[in-house]
Amino acid sequence: MNIFTKAFWLQLSTPKNFYPIAGKLIPWFLISATLLAVIGLYYSFFVAPVDYQQGNSYRILFIHVPTAWMSMFIYVVMCIYAILGLVLKTRLSDWMALALAPTGAAMTFLALWTGSFWGKPTWGTYWIWDARLTSELILLFLYLGFISLNSAIDDPRRASRASALLALVGIINIPIIYFSVKWWNTLHQGMSVTVDKAPTMATSMFTAMMLLTFAFWLYTIAVALMRVRNIILERESQTAWVQDLVKGKN
């Protein structure tokens, strides 16, 4: 099987072929996510030093920052799938977008929650209406809107196309979240990790953050694949191969 040919990818994108491959990939993603999470948590609790200003309370940021990154990243990936679904009319792309949304919403919620837990000892408040927090909250609403629009429309084709369009309208929020700490004078601190500069924190802190980011990333892939397998079974329940599968003939 040559993975560089178009035929290979076309074959892969049919639900029937994707279903077993996704099933084989899931354990690998789950195992590596767990491994990275264990190492990352070990780093964040035992290796990373105590912060000289915030004490130990800063350690929740090892969850906060990766989930916040993932909340934005998943939205972008979701939009890419949505565009693919709209342009190429591939059902699998629509389903991938749908499968990613709940995890994206969960990541957004976790980012907000851990952020407010960190804010209480550091800023003295659980919540403040500054640009970064507000735009992240809007991101949560966008995910919820995507999911509800998708479930409100009965015809699955129309549902995925309409929600894809909604996702594309909402993507304007992503740069707003990302640059909000630059554009406005916010209470939320600026970026410590950027592409073009060395991170402004201890190396062990950076390592822990990166390990946990990759752990969340792999976890997201694993969960999205699980969910998309369920969607495939649900939407393809009329086809022969799913009926065979359910009856245990395969």
């Binding site: 809007i138 966008l142 919820l144 809107g145 509800s148 629009l149 409100a152 009965d154 309409a162 909402g170």
Partner: peptide, 23 residues
């Protein structure tokens, strides 16, 4: 347009549009 002819369209419309009204 997105919620046209959709079950519970009114409430859904609010959920979809109000976040975009925020700016």
């Amino acid at each position: 347009g997105l919620t046209l002819g959709v079950r519970g369209g009114g409430v859904l419309l609010a959920l979809l549009i109000l976040p975009l009204y925020v700016p």
